[in-house]
């Protein structure tokens, strides 16, 4: 058995790992873990990742979790083009810096935007107060501004003239609020052009394929009560 990736393309870090592996022709067996059915909470999946999170990677008897760790592992193991995670000390530090920053900022904003704006009311049938939603969207707005002003600036990509892991991780995050119907790129021409550049670098077909699930999330049938009960504690912990 070769490399196995446990993913659900509904999850933003899973999309980053999926696109990265496909784009770099890394051979893997795809193991779908259906989040909205709660498959990640099953005993079977706990054998793979006791923390019950996707993505997870299995390479023979080596199991690895956390998307950034997985991306870096693949980068080193498969000798992908240098621009993804440059050898140059300072260029690499810029990628590390972005990856650390997004973890505690953009990640949270995009996740909350998706759940508060859409998944709670539409999928779980739980109303979200207008105040909560407004606060979430305001936070997203501030974070997007930081992304544009502090990281993108006038560069072609977030950490320099070439695409890197930073761009991949960022774009897959932004597609979360896009999936929820937020106008992420409106009024942000620099970010909009950057998105086109990232899509072109990744390849439009692959980009579309990876985002089919999130862009159709608004049409998910409402969760049945058993599933809802099962997912609720996980959702609340995830978006707190």
């Amino acid at each position: 058995m070769g490399l196995e990736l446990y993913l659900d393309l509904l999850s933003q870090p899973c999309r980053a790992v999926y696109i990265f592996a496909k784009k770099n022709d890394i051979p893997f067996e795809l193991r779908i873990v259906d989040l909205i059915k709660g498959q990640h909470l099953s005993d079977a999946f706990a054998q793979v990742n006791p923390l019950k999170k996707v993505p997870a990677l299995k390479d023979e008897d080596f199991t690895l979790t956390e998307s950034v760790a997985i991306l870096l592992y693949l980068t080193r193991k498969y000798k992908v083009p240098d621009y993804w995670y440059p050898q140059d000390l300072q260029a690499r530090a810029r990628v590390d810096e972005y990856l650390a920053w997004q973890h505690t900022t953009l990640r949270r904003s995009c996740l909350r935007a998706l759940w508060h704006k859409m998944m709670f009311p539409v999928f779980l049938g739980e109303p979200v107060s207008p105040q909560t939603l407004a606060a979430t969207l305001a936070e997203l707005d501030v974070t997007l501004q930081l992304l544009e002003d502090k990281f993108l600036q006038n560069k072609a990509f977030l950490t320099g003239p070439h695409i890197s892991l930073a761009d991949l991780v960022a774009i897959t995050e932004l597609m979360h609020p896009v999936g929820a119907g937020c106008q992420v790129f409106e009024g942000r021409p620099k970010l909009a052009t950057w998105r086109q550049r990232v899509e072109a670098a990744v390849g439009e077909d692959l980009f579309r394929e990876a985002h089919e699930v999130i862009l159709k999330a608004k049409d998910f049938p409402p969760a049945d009560p058993t599933i809802k009960q099962k997912l609720m504690p996980w959702v609340l912990a995830m978006i707190r």
Partner: peptide
């Protein structure tokens, strides 16, 4: 390779 991946795995979880 794998030892470094363990460090990054921890750092990712730590951040979350």
């Amino acid at each position: 390779l794998q030892a470094r991946a363990r460090v990054h795995e921890y750092l990712g979880w730590h951040a979350d």
